[in-house]
Design a binder for these strands. Structure first.
Lengths: 140, 140
DNA sequence: TATTGTTATACTCTATAACTATA
DNA sequence: TATAGTTATAGAGTATAACAATA
């Protein structure tokens, strides 16, 4: 009974997925973090504080990340009218296009990684992975 | 038939694992990359070129990574006697201790993330995940 | 006073290009 | 010439601490 075998496998699988993420990001000439930012913005929170929590970053790190993303024209800061300390981050049109395209590519490549597996296994794996992730992550 | 559900779940899982990795690394006052380096050295290649391939890094990035790891006393460069251009990187005693401890912690936390699942499912999943990862990754 | 976000600073990570030394 | 690794450089990511503006 090796209680760590599944965990070890999942860690390795996660590394493989990270590699895919990095490769796809490069195709768009962006960093993995910038792609991640775009994907969060697709259907996640938009405030700096909320996003830094979602991404597990300090607020000051968010500032820099958004600064650089803004310089690249993929997001814009929008001042919040109700609370003038706050701001929302919004995708530009280019940002949204890249977000969707990157998501599609990553998904396709990860799917290719998984390859052909028994449909029953697929369903089991899906439900386990979904169970693990549910409520713990905002990312795409 | 949603062909992207599993892939999306795996991407999210990868992010969660990265978070676990980052948190554990912090406990040891090392970066995720340094912990990864230690884990590769536990049973992977030891030459600079081989390792850079295993980690998906440029040789020059490896140089810096190993420089900093060496400064921290967790690895040492050992000159290769047969080929005097090359060097092996070896774990120090402290490095080996940290590598094992970090691996245990990461594994335990991911295992906790997985939670209780049917033993039959677990076995199936193990073999599926192992199949996906086999031959594609050296990391722990 | 508490919260939102930024600035200043220091380190780390990474890639590209040019290089040294050895094979 | 080809290979193993380093150096130089530039940009990106991150955290901590101190700060400004607003609530």
């Amino acid at each position: 009974m090796d209680d760590t075998k599944l965990a070890t496998g999942l860690v390795r699988l996660a590394h493989l997925v990270s590699r895919v993420y990095a490769e796809v990001s490069r195709e768009f000439e962006l960093t993995p973090q910038q792609i991640q930012l775009l994907c969060v913005l697709l259907d996640g929170p938009t405030g700096m504080t909320e996003m830094s929590r979602a991404l597990g970053l300090e607020k000051s790190s968010m500032t820099g990340l958004v600064d650089r993303a803004e310089r690249r024209g993929i997001v814009v800061r929008v001042r919040d009218q109700r609370d003038r300390r706050a701001c929302d981050v919004a995708l530009t049109e280019q940002g949204r296009t890249i977000a969707h395209a990157a998501h599609r590519k990553v998904t396709a490549q990860v799917e290719a990684l998984v390859g052909a597996i028994d449909p029953g296994d697929r369903e089991r794996l899906e439900s386990v992975v979904t169970g693990i992730v549910r409520g713990r992550d905002v990312l795409t």
